[in-house]
Simulated scan of single mutants.
Amino acid sequence: MTDHTQKHIDSPEVAAWWAERRRYLEQIRKTPELRQQFRKEVALYLLRRALWCYGFFPVVIAFWLPFVLSSFNPVVMANSLIPMLQEFVASNPEQQATTLSTLTIAWLSIGSFFLVFDFVLTPFRSPYEYEADVYMKAWEQVNHDPLPDKV
């Protein structure tokens, strides 16, 4: 059996670490450049997630899946799709509207399904948290790893 050594962390030390982190986060939240960067990061994150979930996944399901089911043969796929398209064009406007609304609801429901899981799997990483992580690593080195006198 191997001997596992565990580093004992004192409770006051952990409390001091969290207190310093909270203090630093409060301080940097007042910085206009970081506030602007935060807004930009949130907007890019939401745009990226929306494009990914409402653009990529419904397209894959709507086009790649039938392509796979037709054994990667575009002629077979076209032969099955052309009669459906002709039937759609020949139908009355109410049936066309119903078909389009059904496709829109399907598109949005698939995108929303993937969006929920995408938010869970790829959470937003705040620039404030990143800055605090960098600061706290430096703080740990200064407060807990003093350099030898003869360096």
Rank of each mutant, 00 (worst) to 15 (best):
A19D: 14
N143R: 05
A62R: 03
Q86H: 07
Y130G: 13
C53H: 01
Q96P: 01
A43S: 12
W139R: 00
T102L: 02
L81C: 04
A62E: 10
P83S: 08
I28R: 05
A62Y: 13
A78E: 04
Q37E: 11
I9H: 03
E33N: 04
G111V: 11
V42D: 01
Y130W: 10
W139T: 00
Y54V: 14
Y128C: 11
I82E: 00
K137C: 03
S91D: 00
L108H: 06
V75T: 08
Y45S: 12
V14M: 06
A138S: 11
P32E: 02
N92Y: 03
W107I: 15
A50Q: 01
V42C: 06
P66E: 04
F67D: 01
F57Y: 15
L85D: 00
R23Y: 07
H4L: 13
K137F: 05
Y135I: 02
S70D: 11
P32W: 09
E20H: 06
F119I: 13
S71E: 14
C53I: 08
I82V: 14
E87A: 15
L121A: 14
V42N: 01
P32C: 07
D118I: 05
W52F: 07
L121R: 14
D145F: 10
V59P: 03
A78G: 04
P127F: 02
P123V: 05
Y45V: 13
K7D: 13
K137W: 03
L34R: 08
S11T: 14
T122V: 09
L34H: 06
V142H: 08
D149W: 05
T5Q: 15
L100V: 15
E26M: 11
Q6D: 12
I105L: 05
S109T: 14
L108F: 13
F88S: 01
R23D: 12
Q27D: 07
L108G: 14
E87Q: 15
V42M: 05
N79L: 12
L65K: 00
L108S: 11
K30V: 01
D145N: 09
Y128S: 08
F117N: 14
W18Q: 03
L44C: 07
E41S: 15
E20L: 01
Y128Q: 10
D145E: 08
R39N: 08
V76T: 06
